[in-house]
Nucleic acid binder design. Sequence first.
DNA 1: CGCTCATTTGACAGAAATCAAAAGCGGTGG
DNA 2: CCACCGCTTTTGATTTCTGTCAAATGAGCG
Lengths: 287, 287
Amino acid sequence: MNFLSATRPATSKCDVCPVRENGICGAADRQALAELDRHSHLKNFERGQTIMSPEHNPPFVGIVVQGVVKLVNNRADGGESIVGLLYPSAFCGRLTTERLGFSCEAVTDAAICCIDRTVFDKLLAAQPAIEARLLKATMDELDWMRVWLALISGRTTMQRLTTFLAVMASRAGTSTGQETATRDGAYVKLILDRRDLAEVLGTTVETLSRNFQSLARQNIIEVKGSRLFRVIDQNRLICESGETGRTISRVAEGRPYIDPDSARPCGTSSTAADRDLEDVSDKRRVG
Amino acid sequence: MNFLSATRPATSKCDVCPVRENGICGAADRQALAELDRHSHLKNFERGQTIMSPEHNPPFVGIVVQGVVKLVNNRADGGESIVGLLYPSAFCGRLTTERLGFSCEAVTDAAICCIDRTVFDKLLAAQPAIEARLLKATMDELDWMRVWLALISGRTTMQRLTTFLAVMASRAGTSTGQETATRDGAYVKLILDRRDLAEVLGTTVETLSRNFQSLARQNIIEVKGSRLFRVIDQNRLICESGETGRTISRVAEGRPYIDPDSARPCGTSSTAADRDLEDVSDKRRVG
DNA sequence: CGCTCATTTGACAGAAATCAAAAGCGGTGG
DNA sequence: CCACCGCTTTTGATTTCTGTCAAATGAGCG
């Protein structure tokens, strides 16, 4: 590894990329990575900007490097629903033959690594390891999507909200590490504002607000700000959701989590925290 | 076994498989197909039977050959929600390293082509064409899932139901061909009973029934039986759904459609392979 | 301070879940 | 053919939840 580095530019963007290990690039060998480096470019988007849309079929695919991106579906009545959230290291876009199905917008300020489609396709064909990685990532995403579907098809808005919060709390706990090892009392920062969250959960901001306040009155959470809350009672939170702790933890860990803000790689996967959560699911029986 | 093999027809089961072209096997060359043929086994499941479940991590992956299969998520409160429906040619299961996320149950009598997991994995690695096919199928499924998510996140149950019916009607019209070129007046047969449909749409059978009757009173559909209805006014049906016709047709045509019924019964007599793969298969009879 | 935007709260009508019961439907056996 | 049984579907009455309209409060900003 010593003198080989001389062949590369001293400051390759891939070298310092925070998601290189977690993204599909992690499966690229030295040569493929150099190729990727040459044919990709990092692009910054401000909160709210459209990254790609079905109308202008974009000539690139993307990898989320920093920030959070939402996939939105526009309805006939003018409303829109969010069908997916992409975090750092997520793949975004379709292969050459396919039309993009959804608009892709930045929820926060975001950085996307844009890779030329044809180059990417060639690379996929030439490098089975990358293809395999993408396949796994896609299957994970699909699985995650199904879990999400299960979650948001909860009967009441309260169930959907508590599920969402429980997942976020669990996720924050297992990955950033800074928040807490003990779930209870963990501060959790939401990425979405009320409006976005309402769209994700298929409800309205008013109902959402009422549910937040209701949870606060029951001392299950404490609302510290519009996008910051503290979980006081993880157990009751999960209980309200109607889901099993196992399901919650599965969705929480279904995708590698990298803090969208700091965008520093987090290679850790779950450990002790998992078992806590499993406990919860075992303890609580019928509600 | 060698003696018995004389009684088998000269044609392999893959030769007569109704989904061979559409499934991932379509990308297999002659040798790979022979390999698949050797290490796979067609298995029949009765309506309601569990095909695979997360508890008993099954040693095989499956391809739906006939019938319809549902992916169900079990909730803590005992309820379950359906997070996916798999039609003939769909892939079902996870690769070796992954844990299965959902139970997989037969909605109708179904035939599944069970392929040994390790064999399948080796085949994937050895045959990039198959891997590419699976990748595309998975991405399609993911995309489809997102559209589906957008659809069923409609605010009211009526919106979700009308969307579902519109999709089914559109699907029946475009693919089997027999029903109609003219949508209005098309008879559509539902695969799901009220209970399953309620689980798919995240509601209750009572609400569902009321909505059906309401649509009938408005002369938008005619309920001909518990699983058979006729679309009288396709336009108003879509209008009620709040979705665009474009979205409806996208979801309707998003996956290759093979009539779950028309696939002819595939002869499966018990052979040695049965014992190999037999696991969760005849676990739970419907109670 | 006035402005804008996000969030919360209130009031009320409509929608859905729940509990309960009746009607329809496909078998089985007399 | 009919009575009976178990099951699904429909209908009714009631309560709870949610969307909608409207207004108040709060936070950020020049």
